[in-house]
Structures are given as C-alpha cells and as structure tokens.
C-alpha cells in the first residue's frame, strides 16, 4: 500500500499494532492492553493530522494512488452498467469512461475520467488526461442522455487535458470549448462530482453541471500548483506555496461559490474506506437528483446558466478611464487613427 509523507506516523503505529497481533498469536501472549493503547494513539494521530490538512496535503491526497476512481464509484453505486466506447469519429480515449446504467431505479448516463492502477493501465488511460476524442466521447454520451431525457452523472478526476502534439492537431481547445457550450444547452439534469483532481480546463470540459459536488479532500484548480509555481515563482518546487494561494480545496471553493456541496470522506481519506465514501456520494446524489425532478428542460438550462453566470468578482466606479491619463490617452488615440 502506498502512503504519503504525512501519513507516515499513522502507518508506523498501524504497523506496530499488526506486529503485536502477530507476535501475540504466535507466542500465545496477551498484548491486548498494548494494542488498545496503540489503537487509541493511532486514532488520535489521525484526528490530529486530518483535522488540519494543508492545501498541499489535500493536493497529495487527491492524487493518492489508492483513492477510489470513477469505475469504483460506478461499481459501488450503479447496476447494469454498460460501457459505451469511442467518439464515433477518431478513437476510443480510455482516459474517459462512460455508458448507461441504473442508479437505484433511475436510468442514468454516467461519465468520468479514469486513472489507472498500474503503470500499464496508466499508459493505456494516459493518466486520465484526455485527448479531443475523449471529450468527444463524453459529448456523445451527454447527447444521448439529452435526447432521451436521462440524468447525467459525471465524475471528475484528471490532472488536465493532455498537452501533446496529437491533441493539438486534433483540436484540443476546440473540443473543450464545444463541450462547455453544449453542456450549457442540455435540458436534462447534470450532476458533477469532483472525486480527486479537478485539473483546469480538462476537468471543466465535463464540469458544467446543475450541481457541482466535491469530495472533502478533492481539489479543483485553474492550474496545477506545480504549473503555477513554475510560472509565477519560476520554480516548480514552490508548489506548496502555490497550493496555499490558489484556493483549490473544497472548503475554499464552497466559500467562493464555485461548488455547491462538500461530500465527507472517512477519517484518513477516501482510500481508507471505499464503502463509506461511496455511501456518502450515494446519499448526496439521491438528494441532488431529486431536487431537479420537477424541473422542465428549460428550467434546468436556466438554473445551470444562472449558476455559472454569477461567478466572478468585479467592481465598477464612475465609468471613467484610469485617472490622470485620459487626456494623454486621447491624444494618443487620435494620433493612431488610420485615415
């Protein structure tokens, strides 16, 4: 099992507990009081560490290799899932999976970024970094849902859209843009759940939902902390600092009105208890889907439009040019006029 640097003290105590249990069994000695003590210590440690995670620690957690991925949620939440492949144009991008399924009694279309567990699988899935055909696949599935009036559930978990030669040749920017525009116009409920990494445009391309939910330790950011650090600090090792500044945690994003709801994770993070986190997601999805039951397609579009329309913070003054320079500027303009 993989673990992060700040998880180390917990892992060490857990290891000790295991050792006591094994030795106790082998040598027929009763260590139960030591074990109880250690378990108490372990819980205390966990509470201590996880009650005050820094943004950078959350970045690390959101990328934890044992974290549940889209297919784990589909398996845990849905029945009769049938995966549908490809964009009907170029290829089947395995960085995004999707298909039809039942969520309880509700027929839904489900889509999500999919990371790999092994190096081989990550190669196939390109570490969940889609090419244009991945976004095309997602669009195809959403159009299916829209045509037949089915709710769309989307799991977001990507470092970002892939920055490569082929992606550029096939119009990466255009494919993301098209999804943003099309998603704005669908007359069915779209519920997005950020389950791990919400990597910039690559995440937003399937993120224009009526509701955007987010796991407690997931992140959603305009740029990766590493990318931000290398541009603004000219040093990617300043990523920790960048993570502090970007307001990319679920609690920051809820406060800023970017997301709608936080879904709690088990103590220690989602990877510690799949069943727990899947149940939390289920409860939240049921509640949010039922909220839109009585909405007409027009009302759904309207709600989604207004939700994104109001994001942004600006201020206006008296409608004038920057101070003291307007005269000079006017002069410049008239000079520049081409006649």
């Amino acid at each position: 099992m993989a673990f992060l640097d700040f998880e180390k003290p917990i892992i060490e105590v857990e290891k000790k507990i295991k050792e006591f249990k094994i030795i106790g069994k082998d040598k027929q000695v009763d260590f139960s009081s030591e074990i109880i003590k250690l378990e108490k210590k372990c819980l205390k440690l966990k509470k201590e560490i996880f009650s005050k995670l820094s943004p950078w620690q959350k970045v690390q957690l959101s990328r934890h290799p044992d974290r549940p991925y889209t297919l784990d949620y589909i398996k845990g939440l849905m029945s009769d899932f049938i995966e549908l492949h490809g964009d009907r144009n170029f290829a089947d991008d395995k960085a995004i999976v999707g298909g039809v399924a039942f969520f309880g009694k509700e027929p839904v279309v489900v889509i999500g970024h999919q990371k790999g567990r092994t190096l081989q699988e990550n190669k196939e899935r390109n570490f969940a970094m889609p090419h244009p055909e991945g976004y095309g696949k997602a669009l195809k599935l959403m159009q299916l849902a829209n045509k037949f009036g089915r709710t769309v559930i989307i799991f977001i978990d990507t470092p970002g859209a892939y920055p490569g030669i082929a992606a550029e040749e096939r119009g990466q920017a255009e494919s993301i843009a098209t999804n943003l525009k099309e998603m704005a116009g669908f007359g069915v409920p779209i519920i997005c759940v950020v389950i791990g990494e919400g990597g910039s445009g690559g995440a937003l391309a399937v993120g224009v939902g009526n509701k955007v939910l987010m796991l407690e330790n997931a992140i959603y950011s305009v740029i990766s902390p590493e990318g931000c650090a290398s541009i603004l600090w000219r040093d990617s090792s300043e990523a920790k600092q960048a993570a502090e500044k970007l307001a990319l945690t679920a609690s920051d994003l809820l406060k800023n009105g970017i997301i709608d709801e936080i879904i709690t994770e088990p103590l220690g993070g989602a990877h510690c208890d799949y069943n727990y986190v899947i149940e939390q997601v289920r409860k939240s999805l049921i509640r949010n889907i039922s909220e839109f039951k009585k909405f007409t397609p027009e009302e759904l579009k309207e709600q989604r439009y207004n939700k994104f329309r109001k994001i942004g913070q600006v201020k206006t003054g008296k409608g004038k040019r920057p101070i003291n320079q307007s005269k000079q500027r006017k002069k410049q303009y008239s000079k520049r006029n081409i006649k």
Partner: peptide, 22 residues
C-alpha cells in the same frame, strides 16, 4: 485563464461559453 483569480478565472470559460450558447 488568469492564475491570480484561481477558479474564478476558470469558471469564466463556462460563463462565456454558456452566453454564446444562448
């Protein structure tokens, strides 16, 4: 997108595209 406004910036992509959809 402008990094200094974090996710406020990213969401402008969705906002402008939604307006174009209308």
């Amino acid at each position: 997108a402008r990094m200094q406004e974090g996710m406020f910036s990213l969401m402008q992509m969705a906002k402008t595209s939604a307006a174009l959809s209308r």
